[in-house]
Amino acid sequence: MKKVLVATEKPFSQIAIDEIKIVLDGAGFQLELLEKYTDKSQLLSAVADVDAMIVRSDKVTTEVLDAAKNLKIVVRAGAGYDNLDLDACTQREVVAMNTPGQNSNAVAELVFGMMIYGMRKQFSGGVGSELRGKSIGIHAYGNVGYYVGKIAHGFDMKVYGYDPYVSADRMQAHGVEPLASVEELYRTCEFISLHIPANDFTKKSINKAILSMMPQGAVLVNTARKEVIDEDGMIELMDERPDFMYLSDITPDKAEEFQKRFPGRYFFTPKKMGAQTEEANVNAGVAAARQIVSYLTSGDETFRVNR
């Protein structure tokens, strides 16, 4: 019987685990659970004899892969997969997958929750501002960006997008005005919703130079990765521009400095919250289980991210 390990330091909801078990039981697979583990040694022990693994933000490193002698596939339940060592997976002939789109609406709703919280002076009683009529730029128009655009239209916002990998026709079909460059996006929009991945090209690319182009009253919302932000440049900009606000679903490395110097102009979730809804838990977990079953029974590699 094939064994599938769900290894999650930040656990799925019980409903999600129940649904994952139904999928695996239906295929004749055995579910193994490792939740809220506190030491890497626990993970290394748990992977020793499993055929497949589902993770969330848990790091699948060379050390983990070397301990998992029978591992054939690992699925990151979510869109981003920078916690998977893809080269190491490929070298060990382990298929790595993600579950694109399953958490997208949850992340998009969080974008607007943070925007409203920020614009209403963090519910402190001060006079805030409305979203209606404001301009929002979607930096990277993938699954999350699509839902951000849909919700923004409900607020009667002006919606712009930039993504060199997405056609202008697709954006226009969704009521999003495509812009020709990232600079134009930042010059045009009062709000930027950031959805770029963290890679060698994008790390620290959101820097003082690009952010300084934004109009007065600018708000950057980051539900992507902290690595894409040049924190030193951001701090310099916020020193120079008391109108600038930073809202992030990723606590920065220099969070204490932001807290000390910019009260009322920042908000950081204590833990990444974008996918923390019951629905997203179920969607991503069940999708991961189904992808494992499909791969192990029929070789389906549809969502493979390593080669």
Rank of each mutant, 00 (worst) to 15 (best):
Q102P: 00
N103H: 05
N103G: 07
N103R: 00
S104I: 06
N105K: 14
N105V: 13
N105G: 00
N105R: 15
A106T: 11
A106H: 08
A106G: 11
V107C: 03
V107K: 05
V107P: 03
V107R: 03
A108M: 06
A108Q: 05
A108Y: 04
E109R: 10
E109I: 00
L110V: 09
L110N: 03
L110H: 01
L110Y: 01
L110S: 02
L110G: 02
V111S: 06
V111Q: 06
F112V: 01
F112T: 02
F112R: 00
G113R: 01
G113M: 09
G113T: 08
M114C: 00
M114P: 03
M114R: 00
M115Y: 02
I116G: 03
I116F: 03
I116M: 13
I116Y: 04
I116S: 06
Y117W: 09
Y117H: 11
G118F: 04
G118I: 01
G118T: 02
G118P: 02
G118A: 07
M119I: 13
M119E: 14
M119D: 05
M119A: 15
M119Q: 15
R120I: 07
R120N: 06
Q122E: 13
Q122H: 14
Q122Y: 06
F123W: 12
F123S: 06
F123Q: 08
F123T: 06
S124A: 15
S124N: 14
G125I: 10
G125V: 08
G125F: 01
G125T: 09
G125Q: 07
G126A: 14
G126L: 14
G126N: 12
V127H: 10
V127N: 12
V127C: 10
V127F: 10
V127S: 12
V127K: 13
V127D: 08
V127G: 03
G128F: 03
S129P: 01
E130K: 08
E130C: 05
L131C: 02
R132I: 02
G133D: 03
G133H: 03
K134M: 09
K134V: 04
K134W: 00
K134S: 11
S135P: 04
S135N: 07
S135C: 07
S135A: 13
S135V: 08
G137T: 08
I138D: 07
I138C: 06
I138T: 12
I138G: 06
H139K: 00
A140V: 12
A140F: 03
A140T: 13
Y141L: 08
Y141V: 10
Y141C: 02
Y141G: 01
G142K: 14
G142T: 12
G142N: 11
G142Q: 13
N143C: 13
N143T: 14
N143I: 10
V144K: 01
V144A: 05
V144D: 04
G145A: 14
G145V: 09
G145P: 08
G145I: 10
Y146Q: 12
Y146R: 15
Y146K: 15
Y146D: 07
Y146M: 14
Y146G: 00
Y147V: 13
Y147F: 14
Y147C: 10
Y147H: 15
Y147L: 09
Y147M: 10
Y147K: 13
V148P: 00
V148G: 04
V148K: 03
V148M: 06
G149P: 11
G149F: 08
